[in-house]
Simulated scan of single mutants.
Amino acid sequence: MVALYLSLIDKQEEKNRFEELYYRYRNLMYYIAYQVLHQDRDSEDAVQEAFFRIAKNMDKVKDIASTETKNFVAIITKREAMKIYDKKKKRDEDFDVDLTNIKKHNSENLVNEVKNAIEQLPYKFSSLLTLKYVLGYSGKEIAEITGLTETNVRQQLMCGRKKLSEILEEDL
């Protein structure tokens, strides 16, 4: 199966990194997908779709062992699993998101408050906010990664920021 994904990548260096990423994170990705879908076949489909997205965006992955890459892989996998879930159930449900590996800043109290507020958001908003503001991807890159349109990414980021602001205002 790895050969299929590798055929999507042009540069040999990126192929080598993808292969390392594949073997390092495939079990984690399956675990994440299974937590959402609770079915083997659907979970495998979600992981397969996630690997296709990652292969197409391999130029954005630098250090395979980094927390940033692990979060990137987890977000892509969970979004793909959520797409399958939504298609099957035709409804939008919130799922907990694990953001324990977010980069540490000087003011840990503020970071913890923001992290807790992000965890309260629906996954479709929390994942996009994480890609944008924690991992630093542009709207165009997020659209490529998630399969959404740039307009949809901007709208969901705007809604996510608004909801995040409301949650933070309640807590203060």
Rank of each mutant, 00 (worst) to 15 (best):
V114R: 07
R24E: 06
V2K: 00
V153Q: 01
Y85L: 08
I84D: 01
R53D: 13
D96R: 07
V2Y: 00
D40P: 02
N106C: 15
L129F: 12
N71R: 13
T77H: 07
E141F: 07
A50E: 04
N27R: 05
R91L: 13
K15I: 14
H105Y: 15
G136Q: 13
Y22D: 13
E108I: 10
E68T: 13
I54K: 01
F52C: 02
A3W: 00
V2F: 00
K103R: 09
A81V: 14
F51R: 11
D45H: 01
D42R: 01
I9W: 00
T69E: 09
L168K: 03
P122H: 02
K70S: 09
G147I: 09
E19L: 10
E80N: 14
F125D: 15
E93R: 10
D96V: 11
D86H: 12
L135E: 14
V114N: 05
L37V: 07
K15L: 11
K89S: 06
E19P: 01
G160A: 02
G160S: 02
K78Y: 03
K78E: 15
D171Q: 07
L110N: 06
L8P: 00
M29P: 09
H38G: 04
K88C: 08
E80C: 10
T151P: 00
I54W: 04
E170R: 03
N16A: 09
E93Y: 06
E68Q: 14
K70H: 12
N71L: 15
K115R: 15
L128D: 08
I32K: 14
D42P: 00
D59G: 15
T146K: 03
N152T: 14
V73H: 07
Y5H: 04
I9S: 01
Y25F: 15
L148T: 06
V153S: 07
R154F: 11
M1T: 02
N57E: 12
N71T: 15
N27C: 04
N152F: 04
S126E: 09
S127I: 05
Y25E: 10
E44T: 02
V36N: 00
C159P: 00
E13P: 00
K140C: 05
S7Q: 03
K83C: 04
V111F: 04
A50Q: 03
K60E: 10
N27M: 05
A81R: 11
V36T: 14
S165G: 04
K140H: 10
E80V: 05
T67K: 06
K70M: 12
K162A: 11
R161W: 00
E44M: 07
K70Q: 15
G136T: 12
Y5M: 06
F95S: 08
A81K: 12
M82D: 05
L28M: 10
A117Y: 06
R79N: 13
N106H: 13
R161I: 04
S126W: 07
L148F: 14
K78V: 05
F51W: 14
Q39G: 11
F51S: 11
K11D: 14
M82T: 12
E80Q: 13
K104P: 04
R26Q: 12
N152M: 07
E13H: 01
R41I: 13
E170H: 01
L135S: 15
S165Y: 02
R154K: 06
A74Q: 11
A143G: 10
S165K: 04
K87P: 01
I167T: 03
G160H: 03
Y31M: 05
E80M: 13
E19T: 08
K60A: 12
F72D: 05
V61D: 05
